[in-house]
């Protein structure tokens, strides 16, 4: 009984994301709880969030700029957390994008904001920014649907 045969389209982004995300969830759940219970939920939230982002980006692969940017960011955050002190890492975590002021032009208010929202969109021209935004929206939709179905399954 192979699950690959039973799935509708095993190479689709949706099923790839589901597999990777559920595996990451089990890994998070199997992790032993930290000592301080006050930060437990927050850390779990961070982990789940990062797992969702990373599994989405790795399901898409490195073809897209936004997935590459997400993977780059997560990898650098891990390295920061391993290397640098905790204050800097929390600073990097609260900030949405560490490269926020990098390569940004002045003007074009809404386009600039879109650049900030879409990961890796700071150094893109407007045309490819729109393409990346379309793909990012589709993948976010898939992510939201899958995560909502998982959460509904857990909560019911």
């Amino acid at each position: 009984m192979n699950p690959q045969n039973l799935s509708l389209n095993p190479t689709s982004i949706r099923s790839k994301f589901t597999k990777t995300f559920l595996r990451a969830l089990t890994r998070i759940n199997n992790r032993r709880p930290p000592i301080s219970p006050s930060r437990e939920i927050y850390q779990r939230y961070r982990r789940v969030k990062i797992a969702a982002d990373a599994s989405m980006a790795s399901a898409v692969g490195s073809r897209r700029t936004w997935s590459r940017a997400i993977l780059w960011k997560i990898r650098n955050q891990r390295r920061y957390r391993a290397l640098v002190s905790r204050r800097i890492s929390t600073h990097a975590m609260t900030k949405r994008d560490p490269r926020e002021n990098y390569g940004r032009e002045v003007g074009h208010g809404s386009a600039d904001e879109l650049r900030r929202i879409v990961p890796g969109g700071e150094a893109m021209d407007f045309c490819s920014l729109l393409g990346e935004t379309a793909h990012y929206i589709k993948c976010l939709n898939t992510q939201v649907q899958v995560m909502r179905s998982i959460a509904d399954l857990y909560s019911t």
Partner: peptide
């Protein structure tokens, strides 16, 4: 929000996560 929800829900449901894992892998 969903990841927060999952983070809040998961540790209490460890015992049957495999079950949902199995269910979730079936896209049908």
């Amino acid at each position: 929000f969903l990841s927060m929800k999952l983070a809040a829900v998961n540790p209490r449901l460890d015992f049957n996560i495999d079950n949902f894992f199995a269910k979730e892998v079936f896209p049908a």
